[in-house]
Design a protein around this nucleic acid. Structure first.
Lengths: 318, 318
DNA sequence: TCGCTTAATTGAAACGTTTCGCTTTTTAAT
DNA sequence: ATTAAAAAGCGAAACGTTTCAATTAAGCGA
């Protein structure tokens, strides 16, 4: 693999001249620069990222660590982050699982954005002392150098719940996702406060884990117990769909017999029959905000971004 | 940021000793190694990937370049690749769009897996001379050092079309995706050969671009023209769904009035009403095969993997 | 032609590791 | 005690860039 030395040798000049030429330094006259670039091209020279990063002490790369590539939620977020990052000629790399661990331990990126519930708080705290900047998207963690950015779960769920109450529902249950997660916590809080504000009691609470399958299990037990609420507010769409599927399989009609709502507005939400009422987050926009914040951390400029608001998508499921 | 020198100073030993200790070299006695590791931990030492990569001339990282994070197709593939790669303690990084260009130009990974139709053949040919190994997933390119791996589009579509014919359909049309893509070409070829083999003519050909919206446009024009086939075999699910939506909106019943089939078996395929008949590719398995091949290229061992076969999922749409 | 300013080019240090080959220390056998 | 062998540790070069500071070349006015 050709290196800068080879280019210099062929061009008959010094290494430094080649380096300046390739980096468009104004002290190299254009004609020389062109000649050198041509040679570099011809012999297939690619600069070594390792050497450059070592010398420059940065990589112009941001790492985004996510739980998994599945799930309908991430891709808009990633697109948003990518959009903003590349606009500022930063490179985005994405990783999951154990690859993230490696990447974190090796500081291959200048900054890190984490939305991965599989990384423990403890690990996060530890890593945040050494590696900065880090933005976390899926939780809050005090007394650290982590910057947390979360969507406005509380507000959106509060408004959704108000709408549910306004439609006349009174026996309203909540279906939790993974309990200690930020998303679940704040969605539940919004739900609870909205009920309290209208002097209503929570009819029941069920606990799932954000997956469709957990929704089906909850629905099956619910049917056996014969203690059905009039309405189930779910912490996300996938559980809502799991619940609806089982309910329908047992002959219940939605929304006639029982209402269901979700959160996230995944694609499926508007294909399922009945169409699922949900909350839409503009995750592309949100991704851009996250990236902007990262860039400001990287350049040490302070910028201010607002929490991303949710938009109610009231459809046919309650 | 602490470096290996700092660790050595505190430990009161040489840099090389620290390096050996941290890399579990047997010449350092366990007690010393432990002591050094403790110190490294305490001062938050993280080795510099740049320096290590420079010296070792590898990164133990594989880059996967994809067109976009959206689309329901990629994530299983990525999971499969990741699974296999991490099993061999390689790290996977993923990129799209212009980030890919940067990454390619900087050789941050030991190997590259590309499934990105936005990269031109020309670019690919050029890059393949310099940067190896590269596996491409979405096309074939002769006379290059690229290794191409594609799923068995031809075979699966051939079998699907046979099934369509066996069900009694005769006026059968094909809906293309992006025309020159490998996926489209071979799916169409399978379709065509299956018809020819039964002495049937292609009733019509439409051209979309693999998106749902292109399907809707095709369907709208089709309805206007009043030249409906009995059956539309689509090059992928998303177009099939677009077509079905419009057809239904205009009062056509599927499969009574007209049959439709897809390819890929995306999640939506089994939620849409009627459930879409399609071809399922086990992309997780496929991803593992791709990763295995990459590893073998990296280690220069030759291994042989078989093309991934498709599984017919015949449901209610024809 | 001389000096003076500006343009073009270069040498060498530095970035933080790994690893070869050598030296010093310890252990154990005589 | 002596010495050979084994164990532990160390020094320095090398990886491929970037960039500072210094050198050489060119341009030009008098």
């Amino acid at each position: 693999m050709a290196n800068i030395k080879d280019v210099a040798k062929i061009a008959g000049c010094s290494i430094s001249t080649v380096s300046y030429a390739l980096n468009d330094d104004k002290r190299i006259p254009e004609v020389t620069a062109l000649r050198i670039k041509k040679i570099a091209d011809d012999i297939g020279y690619l600069p070594s990222a390792a050497a450059r990063n070592l010398k420059k002490k940065n990589t112009r790369t941001v790492l985004v660590a996510i739980s998994d590539f599945g799930g309908p939620v991430y891709h808009e977020l990633l697109d948003g982050i990518h959009h903003e990052l590349t606009k500022h000629s930063y490179t985005m790399i994405v990783s999951t699982g154990s690859s993230t661990d490696n990447l974190l331990k090796e500081r291959m990126a200048d900054g890190t954005i984490i939305s991965d519930i599989n990384i423990s708080n403890q690990t996060l705290k530890q890593i945040s002392k050494i590696l900065k900047p880090i933005i976390i998207l899926d939780r809050k963690l005090d007394n650290t150098d982590l910057v947390d950015m979360t969507i406005d779960n509380y507000d959106a769920m509060y408004r959704l719940t108000e709408d549910v109450i306004n439609k006349g529902y009174r026996k309203i249950a909540f279906c939790h996702g993974v309990k200690k997660t930020h998303d679940n916590e704040y969605r539940f809080k919004g739900f609870k406060d909205a009920l309290e504000n209208r002097n209503l009691e929570i009819f029941a609470e069920y606990v799932g884990n954000f997956t469709k399958i957990s929704g089906t299990i909850i629905a099956e037990e619910l049917i056996k117990s014969n203690q059905l609420p009039e309405m189930i507010v779910c912490a996300n769409d996938e559980m809502a769909i799991g619940i609806m599927e089982v309910l329908q399989a047992w002959g219940y009609e939605i929304p006639k017999d029982i209402g269901v709502s979700g959160f996230d507005d995944i694609e499926l939400a508007s294909y399922f029959i009945p169409k699922l009422s949900s909350v839409r987050i503009n995750r592309f926009e949100w991704g851009r905000k996250v990236a902007k914040t990262m860039l400001s951390l990287l350049t040490k400029e302070k910028i201010l971004v607002k929490k991303e608001q949710g938009e109610l998508k009231i459809r046919d499921s309650y």
